[in-house]
């Protein structure tokens, strides 16, 4: 449903080495941001950096570990805003590691960009709308009915 960023990066190092830099807070801050991350499912943590005025972000990202499979997959929520409690950025960052003969293929996806209504129109414009949105409408309708029954 939502728009995402996808990137693929090759490292000439084994997955264990790359994994360390994705999951050890001391190593993470060397290339990403200062963080109190711990590799525990459901763990709440923050990334902190300087405020980013151009994006109206205060530089504090609130995150939660959503999935963790050592050396293979890591996913966490990534939320941010202007600092008044409002969440303007509500995304999920997912890392996947694949061992290859020469090292590690790292796949990054940051998904969930865009408020639902904007994405919905965006998809409508690009023609991909019909199936997906209908499914959501159906689900919402079902949820409403469930509420009434409950």
């Amino acid at each position: 449903m939502s728009k995402s960023i996808k990137q693929q990066f090759f490292f000439a190092h084994p997955p264990q080495a790359v994994w360390d830099y994705l999951t050890n807070a001391d190593l993470m801050q060397l290339w990403l941001m200062k963080t109190d991350f711990q590799p525990i499912l459901g763990f709440d943590f923050q990334f902190t950096t300087k405020p980013i005025p151009s994006m109206e972000l205060d530089g504090i990202f609130n995150c939660k570990v959503l999935e963790i499979t050592p050396f293979k997959k890591l996913a966490y929520s990534w939320k941010g805003g202007p600092g008044n409690g409002e969440v303007t950025l509500d995304t999920v960052v997912t890392w996947q590691l694949e061992a290859t003969a020469k090292g590690t293929e790292l796949y990054l996806e940051q998904s969930g960009f865009g408020k639902l209504e904007h994405v919905t129109i965006y998809n409508a414009m690009s023609g991909g709308w019909a199936g997906n949105v209908q499914k959501i409408i159906d689900r919402l309708n079902a949820a409403q009915h469930a509420d009434i029954i409950a």
């Binding site: 990137q7 990066f9 490292f11 000439a12 190092h13 080495a17 790359v18 830099y21 190593l27 060397l30 290339w31 990403l32 790292l106 990054l108």
Partner: peptide, 8 residues
């Protein structure tokens, strides 16, 4: 990620 590569 470029920075991470340099570090590694």
């Amino acid at each position: 990620l470029k920075k991470l590569e340099t570090l590694l």
